[in-house]
Each structure stands twice: as C-alpha cells, then as structure tokens.
C-alpha cells in the first residue's frame, strides 16, 4: 500500500507538473538570455558569455528556486487541501481507528515521492531553461549558435550541479512537510481549509527562500 501510494504521488507530482515546469523554465531561460544580452551591449564582455550566464544562473539559482516556488503553489496547496479535506471528512479518524499510522501513510509517501521526483523536475527545468535561452537569443540574432554553445561549454564546474540537487532536495522536503503539516492539523470548516492551503504556500515560499540563502552561504563559502 505504501509503495503504491508513493508511486501515485510520484506520478501526481512528477508527470502532473511537467507542463507547468516546462513552460516556466523555457521563459526563465529566454528572459535571462535577453536581459543579459541587453546588459552586455556595448561592453567588453564577449557575446558567448550569454550562454555561460544562462547556464550557470539557471543551474545554481533559477531552476531549483523558481521551480520549487511554483511547486509550492501547485503541489503544496494540493497536498494541504487533500489531507485537510480528509481530516474534515473524518477519513483520517476512520484510518486511525482501523489502526493505520495516518501520519506515516498519508505524509511519508508524499515526502519520499517529492524528494525523489522534484530534483528530477529541477534537472529538467535547468535543461529546458537552457533551451529557452537558446531559442530566445539565437533565432532572433542576439548571438550566434556557435557563441551560445561555446558559452554553455565554458567554465563548467560540476559542483554547481551538486548545489542544484542539494537545493532541490531541501526545497522538496520543506514544501512537502510544511504543506502536509498544515493539512494534517487543520481544524474547522472550509474557510479554515482554504486558509491552511494558503498558509502552506506562503510558509513554504518563505522557508524555501530562507533555505536558498543558507545553502548559498554554506556551499559557496
């Protein structure tokens, strides 16, 4: 049952979020490329730096942080509402009386699924974002195909990938645990359920940003 539920959650979080993550990522890359090309205009910095900047800003910051902020809204609010609804309809009480460890059954599969799937989504987001940067800068003539690819291949440090995955795992844990907590302990009626859902997103976002800062401090010092 736990395995089946974990698989269901992986599908919901992973496959269910592919489109939104893809759309956001492509625009993150596109906007990053366009804005950096604007800032680099007329300077002494070579054009191929656009590819390099898009790659690193995406991997280190944009892909994990923006993706997880969006997922806090999409997946986190969904989790809080799902568990909160079960609390209000006495489903959780029913499971407790059956002898089910409800915290383990309802929260653990979500947590495991999120910690496994969200880093994959973040990796995908980084990849799509780099493609987004390419699409926004090469066909429009901002830089050449050769320059963009050269930028992508310059100064590559695999430690940045490690940092991206650390962020993704921590953010996934935060957004899932906060959202599940808000849903699991919801009291009252539909207004309180809505508030719990909102609270889950707001708290997750704040803590993700705070954790982002801490990880940046710890892993770059």
């Amino acid at each position: 049952m736990y395995w089946k539920e974990t698989m269901r959650q992986m599908n919901d979080i992973g496959i269910g979020s592919l489109v939104i993550v893809g759309i956001i990522s492509i625009f993150i890359g596109a906007v990053t490329a366009v804005q950096f090309s604007y800032q680099l205009q007329g300077g002494f910095i070579p054009d191929y730096y656009i590819g390099y900047i898009v790659r690193d800003s995406t991997i280190i910051e944009m892909a994990p942080t923006i993706t997880c902020l969006v997922l806090a809204g999409k997946v986190g609010s969904n989790m809080a509402a799902e568990i909160g609804g079960m609390r209000q309809k006495e489903h959780i009480d029913a499971m407790e009386i059956m002898g089910v460890n409800t915290a383990a059954y309802l929260i653990l599969p979500k947590l495991i699924a999120a910690v496994v799937v969200i880093p994959m989504l973040v990796f995908l987001a980084a990849f799509v974002s780099i493609i987004g940067g390419y699409l926004a800068s090469v066909p429009t003539g901002i830089i050449t195909d050769t320059d963009y690819v050269r930028g992508l291949r310059s100064f590559f440090d695999s430690y940045n990938i490690f940092m991206m995955f650390v962020k993704a795992v921590v953010f996934a844990f935060l957004l899932t645990s906060i959202s599940c907590y808000q849903g699991y302990y919801v009291k009252g009626g539909s207004i309180e359920l809505g508030q719990a859902s909102t609270q889950a997103v707001v708290l997750s976002d704040i803590l993700i940003l705070f954790a982002d800062y801490l990880i940046a401090l710890l892993l770059t010092s």
């Binding site: 407790e96 009386i97 059956m98 002898g99 089910v100 460890n101």
Partner: peptide, 8 residues
C-alpha cells in the same frame, strides 16, 4: 494500534 485492529 494493535487493539484497533479489533475495532470497527
């Protein structure tokens, strides 16, 4: 939980 297995 063990007792609750006997409860409906």
């Amino acid at each position: 939980r063990a007792i609750r297995m006997d409860v409906g």
